[in-house]
Design a protein around this nucleic acid. Structure first.
Lengths: 238, 238
DNA sequence: CGGGATCTTGAGGATGCTCAACGCTAGTGG
DNA sequence: CCACTAGCGTTGAGCATCCTCAAGATCCCG
């Protein structure tokens, strides 16, 4: 299981957190950060390790401070749907129900802040701005979920891949990375299970996009978008 | 466009509202309902009429008090993905962004309470219980969205239909209707666009489910689930 | 009772899946 | 430093599911 540390053991952890600007804690004033840190546990998970398991009592919420994770659901026969990837700044685990309805696993080494639900609830009561921020993040997440339903329900394989690469690239540039570069910490099977395809189809579509000069690859896990405009056109099915 | 009425023109509208128990307003005390009603506009939309349009400034939030609506996204070439159906008690329109990213249209006659966003924000500040309720509803909505991604990404046509009918039936029994009856206010094309199929495939699957004795039909728009257990098994792909 | 919309059914075809083999590469241990 | 290996990625051939196009049946509303 993942390594746990008391957050307060690390001096002033939140003040120097590289995820704060993108995270729910971004709305807190400097002087409130100590209160937040006092309730936090640091967590480090190795690739493949679970953060939450389906059916497990939903006792914690998480703030990803570094790394990447996959969130997914499975059918009894093993078919898997990845419902999202988590990156720096993402939030996980706010549940109305008693148990998690999904699983989350680290893709790379993941570092995260973990809060017990009762503590977190208290903090929402204490800092209304944080609750409002959470509500807005939930709305954004919902918007992305709707977008992804459109992908899964109505787009062709090529359109799905194009949408995926553009989204990854946008995401990483929002987090301060380079423009038009899609770093893929996940393997082809993960991408397939995210896009409702098979890994073979993902591979074939990648090859074809390379052949048509829309993207180039630096190894299998990094794509450079050469013609963003055309890729966008492809993604929107025009 | 839809008919609008001042909510306060209707005496004590909230006190007798048939949706309150299922809605965001359920958490308010009796004495606070007047405050809510003072900010509300009643709205009645005929079948096919829009509630919100994509790209439109997100100026209002809605509480559905009766009827059914579809929420969907479209691609430039007209492909449509219905991301959800709304029923009594459902909430619509809380956006972090400036504009709606989807469209919503009445399926049947829809009655709803509408609030201007600034007013609604004020009420959330005023009634923290309502904000918490909204956050929990958002979490439930997210859970359903994840479930639906699994349907769209990984289930066969038969499994999709089974899942859909079970969900409709459960939904209507939660709202106080009969058990194991799925009333379908939407047409086959709507169901298809919700499930990522074509209306022909929906029709064929319905026929086959009838033939195998899992369900019976009372007209095309009402299904009775004869073997809930087996339908569940089908829906989960076992 | 008429007519348009909706629903059903049929035949043929395309997209993406399955199964299988091969290539690459990064990480490991000698 | 290099050879080895296991996991990952790519490619190919055949096939299944679902889509497309078309026509007929049914239903509901006036």
């Amino acid at each position: 299981m993942a390594t746990l540390t008391k957050a307060t053991a690390n001096g002033e952890p939140c003040a120097s957190c590289e995820a704060r600007a993108f995270s729910i804690c971004g709305v807190l004033r400097e002087q409130d950060l100590a209160r937040l840190a006092s309730a936090a546990t640091f967590l480090e998970a190795a690739p493949g390790e679970p953060l939450v398991r389906r059916g497990q009592a939903a006792q914690h919420v998480f703030n990803i401070s570094a790394g990447a994770a996959r969130v997914f659901k499975t059918l009894p026969d093993g078919r898997r749907q990845i419902v999202g990837f988590l990156f720096r700044g993402d939030f996980l685990g706010w549940e109305a129900e008693e148990a998690y309805a999904y699983e989350a696993e680290a893709l790379t080494v993941v570092r995260a802040c973990r809060f017990a639900r009762p503590d977190f609830r208290d903090m929402l009561d204490e800092f209304p701005a944080m609750e409002r921020r959470l509500l807005c993040m939930a709305s954004d997440e919902m918007r992305e979920a709707h977008e992804h339903m459109l992908v899964l329900g109505r787009k062709s394989a090529a359109e799905r891949l194009a949408t995926f690469l553009l989204r990854l690239a946008r995401r990483s540039s929002n987090l301060g990375g380079a423009e038009n570069v899609a770093d893929m910490p996940m393997n082809r099977a993960d991408i397939a299970d995210y896009l409702g395809l098979t890994s073979e189809t993902v591979s074939r579509q990648m090859t074809q996009m390379k052949a048509s000069g829309l993207v180039s690859f630096e190894g299998a896990r990094r794509a450079r978008i050469l013609r963003p405009q055309q890729l966008e056109t492809l993604a929107e099915g025009r």
